[in-house]
Amino acid sequence: MSRFPDERIVVDYVAPRHLAGGGDPTWITVTLHSACGWRLEHEPLTPDVVLTSPDQKALLRLEPDPDSPWWTLHHAPEQAAPAWYASFGARTPVEFIAAVTDALTDPSADTAAAPDPYDVLRQADWTPAGPRDGLVSPDGTTFLQRADEASAWFATVMVNGSRIVWHAHFSEHTPSRLIAAFTASLTDPTPVARVVDTWRPPTLNPRLVTRTQVGMRAALVAFALEDRVHTLSTRHAPPTTPPSAPPGQPPGPGRSR
């Protein structure tokens, strides 16, 4: 991002979001570090980034490698909860990964609830696909599948009927609420922003993708991340309580002098 706040840049607003490309990794890394207290480390002499949760039970690694998933999220076992992991390909939009990490770090989440990740897809007109338990998006580009009720989840985005754009994988025992957050993001119709000349779209097919270009100040683009950090920081802020009245005086603004 430019250091000159008055500089104007061009932004593409892309829909559907699953074909918008990877996006800016700081949408995830800065938020986990600044809003959720995760420790941020850079692997020396590599582009790798590692973030560790405050309780040291979760680890997110960004490892740009053309032969492997770029993002991997590992969680250690807990009492009555086995270990699990999730992985995401290079062109997985950061908004989808952020939906998972936001749900994971939500201190108010009801961990006992187990929403069906398929429900939101069915409500968005996804239909059954293939011999396995799976659904396909209305545009035919995105598939979510699992072999049975006790197995892993797989999401695949393809264009031209065969070219894979990205994969996402959730292992067995991944909390259902995290997968449900992922599927909810899959059906979100809101376009996502990508700065022109800094991203490579997986497809420009106008029958699949809508792009709206907008010129705006660089500072306004940067503010979106700042606002996201602020919003998520408030989830961890302690509740404020009104100051107590001095001894001998009734509380409240209407007390007599």
Rank of each mutant, 00 (worst) to 15 (best):
I28S: 01
M216T: 11
T240V: 13
P5V: 00
R17C: 10
E172L: 05
S2T: 15
P247R: 11
T101C: 07
A114D: 11
H75I: 04
D188Y: 04
G254N: 15
Q213V: 03
A83N: 13
L40I: 03
G23F: 01
T101F: 01
H173C: 04
P107D: 10
L60G: 04
T183I: 06
R211H: 11
L178F: 06
S176P: 00
G254W: 13
V49S: 04
R207V: 03
V195L: 15
P238G: 12
T52A: 10
M1L: 12
P69M: 06
F88Q: 05
W126R: 05
P253A: 08
S185D: 14
L59R: 15
L40H: 12
S68M: 10
G23I: 00
T105Y: 02
G21T: 02
G23W: 05
S185W: 01
S2F: 11
V209K: 02
T141D: 10
A180R: 00
P64I: 01
E78P: 06
Q213E: 14
V120D: 10
L232Q: 14
E226M: 12
W126G: 02
I9Q: 03
D6W: 13
F96R: 10
A180V: 00
T105N: 13
A147G: 08
S171H: 03
A114I: 00
A184E: 15
L45H: 13
W70E: 15
W70G: 04
L73P: 08
D110F: 08
W84P: 06
P44C: 09
A80Q: 09
F143H: 07
Q56F: 03
E63M: 07
E226R: 14
S256P: 09
W84I: 04
L40K: 07
H42F: 10
A99M: 11
W70T: 14
W84E: 06
P115N: 10
G161L: 11
R132V: 10
V49C: 11
D125Y: 03
I9S: 04
A98L: 07
V120L: 10
T31M: 09
A99E: 09
T31C: 09
R61N: 00
Q56Y: 08
Y13L: 11
L40D: 11
P138T: 02
D12G: 12
R17V: 02
L144I: 13
H169F: 15
H169N: 06
